[in-house]
Design a protein around this nucleic acid. Structure first.
Lengths: 208, 208, 208, 208
DNA sequence: ACGCACGGGACTCCCCGTTGGT
DNA sequence: ACCAACGGGGAGTCCCGTGCGT
């Protein structure tokens, strides 16, 4: 905190943030290192000091994105005092809230990068898989807890159901983006709620 | 049309096929025109004779992909003599069959390109949207027919339900690829069948 | 005149005209054969039927330009019934009239192509030289006749003086184009008249 | 600034010099960036580090050419201790001296580039115009001073007369190049001297 | 920790000219 | 006389990564 307050950590984060911003729009291949440096106000010297190459930055971006998501989902994921089914509902609402930003579409770096790079950049694919698996474990936990609490209509595997929601979520963002219509995401999430409620013995009524 | 004219149409198709093959693996930006020419055994002269630019080829590739899909789905979509709900089941089975190819993963050009390019290449985004909309209309038609025939458990909009399945399908391919596990796609499709059956008055039992 | 009125000669001319139009704007190297074909509504097949290559077309364009110029200058050059000095004045007025076209600048294919290609395309340079020499001989003839008729203030070589005017003319078009100001060409032509008049014993007064 | 930095400024200059050399011969469009890099012994990496594109380099080349010219004309332009008419004579002699180089023709980048690019590359046209205007202002200054000192035979506008000489100069180089005859330039300059002298009250006699 | 100059290698696009056929 | 399909070869641009220097 002397005279160089732009600590190493801060620089790293600025590069990651710039990369996320650009890659969400343009994808990985079309996002140049030069562009990231410009967007972040730094130079390539700084870039290659902090990251071995562009691929390493992308991995860091995926991890940072996951950490940020965990923060946003924390209420639903970690508040063990509430009914797990309610927490699933809350989760779906949080997801729906991501579609409300008027200026920029609802997109996810994990979907972007894994779609583009799964077969060519194994480290990035692995980073994306980690995030998917983490999200899935959290949701599977909620589903298992809800199953324990409420019983189920017909038996189901919480993990499989979580993958179902996970896939639906990423597919919804893809469709929402392709059709330039975030409402389609929200409609999907309403049907997802119906799907979830249908899993359990005493389904909740649909929201008005 | 004797021997010399490699018939233009044929050349076009070879370029499109090569592009699909490469872009499914590497995405759009990382697929070079040189690569497409090499893969198709043609030259850049031929390429730029048939397509104004790479973007135009991608649009053509998306359209060709849709046409091919329509062929594969034809049994489920167009055989009006059968029960619409059965045809939906058949549709899901056809989709599941795409995951069986041992060597190459189950992926879709529409998902690849729209994910990567929706915000930067409007013509490609539009081409992808057209395919999504077409698929959706077909499935929505089936759902509406099934609803008319079987009645529904709780009311639902066939179009919305179709978008739900559409999104799930593309998300499933994304997740299947990211986790290198096609089984995840099949599991999702089984749950999709359960979701569909739950929409109607007299749900079919789950397959063994 | 049967059913194919687009005779060979006509096609040639359309190609030459298109080439002139485009090269006046873009120069030689930036004018593509494809562009010429598009501009003329023909195809490359026609092009290479009539011309061995782009260079040959440029030579033809230079010659066509010269022929057109001779037509425009005819009054001043060939009407032997009038005073040669008057005919020089008329020549300068004809030249000035080229600057009046409101939409397109006053430019000359000979200047364009010889400037760009003199050192790299000998046949084109030679074609341009022919046109310059022809123009010069005509003007030198007028100057010699005027000298014979009016006597001269101080002796001068009509050929040299013609080259002076020739150079001034091409330089004026260059400057007029560079400064986007055709008035500069007209001002130069007024001074040229003054220069010419000063050569002879009884100088004409400047025009009002 | 010790040993490694080939000092950026030096590299820039080498690129500019190479560009001038090549463009004087081949024009702009036919001069490739690869060619410039080869001629200068640098790589395209260096090129695009220093210049945004070829156009920017051409602008820099025009400016550098102007600066070089100012140096060569300095004696005539800036030595205020001598008679302005003498300085004009000196100017014409300096210009004539440019034709003496045995190996390469007397050409000017400003004329080359503005001729070829005026209508398609506005920034280059503007750069050329700047140089023309600068040259003209200098010469107009000399003419005005001479007018003040010597009086004039018939009134004239120094600026217009300067444009006359300017145009004649560029046209002379064009003609000299087209006819492969530098003597024609020198002859024009002799007549230009006669023209200039004729403007003033007490004309100098022609040089032997 | 970071900045600048640079190397070398693509990438997209396009261009000139030919060939086989109408 | 004319045309469509194509070959082969760069054009300009830009990008990732390195190395020197502070």
């Amino acid at each position: 905190m002397k005279k160089r307050p732009r600590s190493s950590e801060d620089t790293r984060r600025r590069l990651v943030d710039a990369a996320i911003r650009l890659m969400l729009r343009q994808g990985y291949a079309s996002t140049s290192v030069d562009g990231i440096c410009e967007e972040s106000g730094l130079t390539k010297g700084a870039f290659f000091h902090h990251f071995a190459n562009k691929e390493a930055l992308a991995c860091a971006a995926v991890a940072a994105w996951g950490a940020m998501g965990s923060g946003l989902y924390a209420q639903a994921w970690d508040d063990e005092s509430r009914d797990p089914l309610e927490r699933i509902h809350l989760l779906l609402e949080i997801m729906a809230s991501f579609t409300e930003s008027p200026d920029e579409p609802c997109v996810c770096i994990v979907g972007m990068l894994s779609q583009e790079l799964s077969e060519t950049h194994p480290p990035i694919r692995a980073a994306c898989e980690r995030e998917l698996v983490h999200w899935n474990a959290k949701v599977a936990g909620l589903l298992a807890a809800a199953k324990a609490r409420h019983g189920c209509a017909a038996d189901f595997d919480p993990e499989e159901a979580a993958w179902f929601l996970n896939s639906l979520w990423h597919g919804s963002m893809l469709v929402g983006k392709t059709c330039s219509d975030p409402e389609r995401i929200r409609a999907n999430l309403r049907l997802a709620r119906r799907f979830v409620d249908g899993l359990f013995a005493a389904p909740q009524p649909l929201p008005a």
